[in-house]
């Protein structure tokens, strides 16, 4: 291959592996925010308030149909304009979390909709509060069918973390850029980043498929 240098690969590999840790951390943090916020969005969309329901729907549509990279810029730069300074890490994880919360809320919504109406009526009949109904009756039944969708978006978040490099989060892409501009060698760092992404996302995606199949089997869907 055109002057691929293995000694350079070994030189930069430790830095890239360190940065992979940061990438995983950013993805994990963003995912945690998305899981919680997505559930809140899904439940809030079931409120009886017509207006707030429509506003939330439109908000979810808005987040889903605009580019994540622009949302990252927005959250990172708009804060200081109003006197709130967010670190790149915080802004990045919030942006990714918010973006994927919109996607996950749709996954949860599908799961909640799949719970038979009788379950809601039964919960009302035995006088459970709304909170109890959700925690004890609805969510335990709604979440298993949502697991596959949740897993797919975990892989999705992981693959979107390079966008955080635009505001200077020191993840993989950012590190590869730094190596490139220090050494004027782009072949090895960018190729290695690609290989690292493949090495993590392909097995994870395969695991998600296995999970999906086993959930389907357990729930008797196939």
């Amino acid at each position: 291959m055109t002057n691929w240098r293995w000694d350079f690969v070994w030189e930069i590999l430790p830095r890239l592996i360190w940065a992979t840790g940061n990438t995983l951390l950013a993805a994990g943090g963003g995912y945690a925010i998305a899981l919680v916020l997505g559930l809140a969005l899904a439940v809030a969309q079931r409120s009886r308030h017509k207006l707030s329901k429509n506003i939330l729907r439109e908000l979810v549509e808005f987040i889903r149909s605009t580019p994540l990279v622009l949302q990252i810029f927005f959250i990172f730069y708009v804060g200081p304009q109003f006197g709130v300074w967010l670190s790149p890490w915080t802004a990045g994880m919030v942006a990714i979390g918010l973006h994927y919360a919109a996607y996950l809320s749709e996954v949860y919504r599908g799961g909640i909709d799949s719970v038979p109406k009788g379950q809601w009526e039964a919960a009302t009949a035995i006088n459970l509060t709304t909170t109890q109904t959700y925690w004890r009756i609805i969510l335990p039944q709604a979440l298993p069918p949502s697991l596959a969708g949740m897993g797919n978006y975990l892989v999705g978040i992981f693959k979107d973390t390079p966008m955080l490099s635009v505001i200077g989060v020191g993840e993989l892409m950012h590190t590869a850029n730094a190596i490139g501009s220090e050494s004027y060698r782009f072949l090895e760092p960018y190729t290695l980043v690609g290989v690292i992404f493949l090495a993590i996302s392909l097995p994870t995606a395969a695991l998600v498929r296995l999970l999906e199949a086993s959930v389907r089997r357990t729930l008797g869907m196939s």
Partner: peptide
């Protein structure tokens, strides 16, 4: 399919823009 779905668009973009000229 697996290469392009398994890595990020940003990585692919940089690779095509910065590395492909080396080839």
């Amino acid at each position: 399919i697996e290469i392009f779905r398994g890595t990020s668009l940003l990585v692919q973009l940089y690779w095509i823009f910065f590395v492909l000229p080396l080839f």
